[in-house]
């Protein structure tokens, strides 16, 4: 089956939440690594965390951005590979990033042009 690529946009609540304690960080790190190992073949690009400031450019003018809803910011992205949206959802659902109630992941299929013969 052909694998499709999915862009996963990680959103989290804006504003400072209470930082995790060192023990909690250890748990988070362990969970993350376990997830990475489990879905090794599905993770195409671990992506990156995005900086907090940015600009929004349109024909009219350049605005300070990023445009965010007050309550959430885009914290990072990654690209995963899966045969279907359902499988992609499964991979993302188990990722530790979805664990906290304030965060969510938006999954969008990356439509690729058909291969030339």
């Amino acid at each position: 089956m052909t694998m499709k690529k999915y862009l996963c946009v990680v959103r989290s609540a804006s504003g400072k939440c209470k930082p995790p304690s060192p023990s909690e960080m250890e748990d988070m790190y362990d969970k993350f690594n376990a997830w990475k190992n489990k879905f090794e073949s599905n993770i195409f690009d671990m992506g990156a965390k995005l900086g907090e400031s940015g600009k929004v450019v349109s024909q009219a003018k350049t605005l300070d951005g990023p445009f965010v809803e007050v309550k959430e910011i885009i914290g990072g992205f990654m690209i995963i590979e899966a045969e279907s949206m359902d499988k992609a959802i499964e991979v993302v659902k188990e990722s530790p990033g979805v664990g906290s109630p304030e965060s969510s992941v938006e999954i969008r299929e990356m439509i690729q042009p058909p291969m030339k013969e």
Partner: peptide, 14 residues
């Protein structure tokens, strides 16, 4: 504390 958070983020990626 900030160094540990940075480690968590960076190491998780790389």
């Amino acid at each position: 504390q900030n160094a540990l958070i940075k480690a968590l983020e960076t190491w998780a990626q790389n």
